[in-house]
Write a protein that binds this DNA or RNA. Structure first.
Lengths: 199, 199
DNA sequence: CTAGCTATCTTGTCAACGTCAAGATAAGGT
DNA sequence: ACCTTATCTTGACGTTGACAAGATAGCTAG
């Protein structure tokens, strides 16, 4: 550290009084993810995020425009991580479902924004492409499970609903006490129960 | 103004300038349901609801305490309508699932609050009893579907997840274009697909 | 190396918000 | 007829999202 000549990036990261933050965009998104984890996608303010990042109250606006803009960025990033996770499991249909549930639990703040379209702007291009990338994995992998050729569509929606519903119920704490334990293992059992014991 | 004899209830309902509203609690909840339908469970203000009901900005506080109090009342009422709907279908397991989805779509504003515990206070007693009443129907009816006696718990969670997930995906508009049409008929097909053709 | 250009951040402001406190009004029982 | 209580209003305070204008610094051309 402590470079002698120029105000390098390292110095800027350390001293909080610097005029330029260095990577405020990332810092605000990270602060938003933290805040969403603590109190949901609406339990915080832009000004609070700015305070956490050590900048003035109007600084975030330059990067995101407004609150919906920030949530659009969060949702877009979420769909990208989501699509990556699903694609990594795309070979095995069971694992796609497990990856769906694991994403919701491991990346809860993303998940809580992504499926709440009224919070952000769905016409964002990077968001749309990532979203379609994730949907593609779901449709192609779940279609393989179809018992009869005419039921691809139905089977896909069913598998998707099962994973999505379990994730949502788990996150909202609505499941009865008997459902405690490891959510990933439980999800695996659920999917197996439905699609036979092919795995 | 200047009523001749008595300020009857009819008069009070008509003239908006009356000091007492008549049934402000109901009016505010109804206004909240409307506002949630239009812009989600966070896209409105208490003051806006007061304006819609034609009362001053602080009037709602007397009935609900604060915003979370109002949302608690909405959630409690929602769980009661929900439990009623499920109980009415409790004979037929397939119909319980259909009733679940239909409630989410027909009473969307309730549904959007009920499964977001961070919005309200879960320790409300009337809310808890209605919530347990609904859960009881789900557990007992879905348990009957279990293929083997040891899998009651898993079967219940699976059926619940399927209905809940389909409802949530439908409401958020996340399903692909191929899934358009009548959601109730689609839900019926989904449940049949999973639990065999016993119906 | 320096002059200016542009991205980035700050400061100041505004209307609207949730909440509280204090007062006004009406309803209903004694 | 009174008066107690529930209901609603008025006014205020600190906070919020958004906007406008100014300050600062990194970058590029000359």
């Amino acid at each position: 550290m402590a470079p002698s000549i120029t105000e390098s990036a390292e110095v800027r990261q350390i001293k909080q009084t610097a005029y330029h933050h260095g990577n405020l965009r990332r810092a605000i998104i990270d602060a938003a993810l933290e805040a969403i984890t603590e109190s949901g996608p609406a339990g915080w303010s832009l000004r609070e995020l700015a305070r956490r990042a050590g900048v003035s109250h109007a600084a975030p606006a330059h990067h995101f425009g407004d609150k919906a803009g920030l949530l659009t960025a969060v949702a877009a990033e979420g769909f990208e991580v989501f699509a990556d996770s699903l694609e990594r499991a795309a070979d095995d249909v069971l694992e796609v479902g497990v990856a769906y549930v694991r994403f919701a639990i491991d990346h809860r703040p993303y998940f809580e924004v992504m499926f709440r379209p009224e919070l952000y702007r769905m016409n964002d291009s990077s968001l749309k492409t990532a979203r379609e990338r994730a949907a593609h994995v779901l449709v192609t992998s779940a279609g393989r499970l179809s018992p009869s050729p005419g039921q691809d569509r139905l089977t896909t929606i069913a598998a998707w609903s099962l994973a999505h519903g379990f994730a949502g119920l788990w996150l909202s704490g609505a499941l009865p006490e008997t459902a405690h334990g490891d959510p990933e293992a439980l999800a695996r059992s659920l999917i197996r129960l439905f699609f036979g014991t092919t795995h």
